[in-house]
Structures are given as structure tokens and as C-alpha cells.
Amino acid sequence: MAWETHPVTPDRFEDFADVINPNRRATHCWCLAHRLRAKDIEELGAGDRETAVRALCEREHPPGVVTYRDGLPVGWCSIGPRTENPKLSASKLIRPLDDVPVWSIICVVVRGGHRRQGVTTALLEGAVAWADSQGAPAVEAYPVDPAGERMDLTMAFVGTRSMFAKVGFEVVGTTGAVASGMPRLVMRRELAGA
């Protein structure tokens, strides 16, 4: 099995879309709900989410990476400098712990039909390696650890604490954000540039 992870540049946009929005629904979040405010989406894409995310793919730091297994796009990770995520940067609940210019993971998606097959581990390893190659000093993620309780939330990284720990992330704090009464953790992995 061959794994590859690449930033979502314009030439890889369709692969990204195949993972997060295979039916190309216009009202789908396009992985912008936790990244951009409505005014940012309006500015980038005249209110059209797909157009806005396409614009992000043209920036120096695209909005994330796609992981491929044997050439097929199977996973998406929204990762980039925290400062390039306006909604996260403005959050009163997920505040920076210190002055380290971290890169943040704010969404992880595994393509339907490919879950429970090791994609998340390969995806996170690839995302961290890409951030490291771009000079990131550390990468943070904000999962919810339900401690055995059942939760039905999307984009909360529910139960992924162990997946982040498996690829070298450590719990360094908690946030003011909660999901079903449980706070999100702050998990960080220091990189070579730190």
C-alpha cells in the first residue's frame, strides 16, 4: 500500500472535493465553517463556498492536505497557520496557549468507504510532515475526548485523542469550547523548527 500526502493546490481541488463533498452540494460546508466568517466567504467567493475554497487553494499556504492511498484520494486534513484561519484566530474559546506561531488542524475527514483502514494515521503523519516542510514550529489540534460517552457531533474530532497521540501529539491544555458538556483538548506536536 502506497501513501502520499499533498497540499490542496488548484490542480488537486477535485481530489479534495471527492473526499469532502463527492456530490458537490453547494450548501455543504466545504470545510469553511470553522475557518472563515461569512464576510470572508463573501469576500473570497461572492458568497459561494466552493469558489471561496478554490481561492484559498491558490494561496501560499493552501487550506490543507489530501492523502492518497495507491493514487486514490482518501483523506482530507485542514491544516495551516493559525493566523490564516480568521474564525479560529478570533475565537474567544480556543485561545492561543502561548506565543508559538502554531499551525492548527481544524478538520479531518476520511472518505466514505475507507474508514477504519489506517487512513487517519497516514493523513495526520502526512499533514504534520507537510507543516514541518513549510517551517511550522508546532502543530495543534483541538479534539473532544468523550471518555467513553456517546456523542453525535460533526467536526468535533470526537474520540480522536488517541489518533493524535499515536502520531506524537501531547495534551497541553484545554479550551473554553465545549461539546456536549466536555471541553476540547489542546494537543500539540513540536516540530524540528521549534
Rank of each mutant, 00 (worst) to 15 (best):
A127M: 07
S91A: 14
G75Y: 03
E58W: 00
T121C: 14
E50F: 11
T27G: 06
A131T: 06
A17H: 00
G118Q: 05
A129P: 04
V109F: 06
H114N: 07
R24T: 01
L97C: 04
C77D: 04
V102A: 09
I79N: 02
S78P: 01
G113I: 07
L88Y: 10
H28S: 13
I41G: 06
C57D: 01
V66F: 08
G75D: 08
A52E: 05
R116L: 05
G112A: 15
W30I: 06
S89Y: 03
D18M: 15
A38M: 08
W76P: 03
R59Q: 15
L56R: 11
D48I: 11
R82C: 01
K87A: 03
I105T: 02
T67D: 02
L97A: 07
A52N: 10
G126E: 02
G118V: 06
R82Y: 03
P96T: 07
R111D: 03
G80L: 03
V74L: 07
R49K: 15
P62M: 08
W130H: 14
V74W: 09
S78F: 00
C77V: 09
T51A: 15
R24I: 05
D40P: 01
W76M: 08
V110L: 09
L123Y: 06
V19R: 08
D40K: 04
P63L: 07
V74I: 11
K39F: 12
V65H: 02
V128S: 01
D70P: 07
E42P: 00
D98C: 03
H28D: 13
P73S: 12
V53N: 01
L32Y: 02
H114G: 01
E50A: 14
K92N: 12
V53D: 03
G126Y: 06
R95M: 08
T67K: 00
P81L: 06
P96M: 07
N21H: 12
A122L: 10
V128M: 12
E60S: 11
E84H: 09
A33S: 15
V74K: 12
G80K: 04
P73G: 04
H28P: 00
R49G: 04
C29W: 14
R111G: 02
I20F: 10
I94E: 01
L93C: 00
R95A: 09
L88P: 07
L97N: 05
N85V: 02
C107H: 00
H34T: 07
V53T: 13
K87W: 03
V108I: 12
V119D: 13
A26K: 15
D99R: 15
P86Y: 10
E125G: 00
I105Q: 03
A38S: 14
H28E: 11
W130Y: 15
R116N: 14
A129F: 13
R24E: 11
W130E: 11
G113R: 15
N85H: 09
I106C: 14
G45E: 09
D18N: 13
L88S: 11
E50R: 15
L44Q: 09
C31M: 06
C57K: 00
E125L: 14
H61S: 07
V74H: 09
P22M: 14
T121S: 14
A127Y: 08
L36R: 07
R116S: 10
S89W: 02
I94N: 03
S91F: 13
I105H: 08
V102P: 00
R111L: 03
A26D: 13
W130S: 06
G45L: 00
V65A: 07
L72T: 15
E58L: 06
V110F: 13
A129C: 12
C29L: 07
E58N: 13
P63C: 08
V102S: 04
A122T: 04
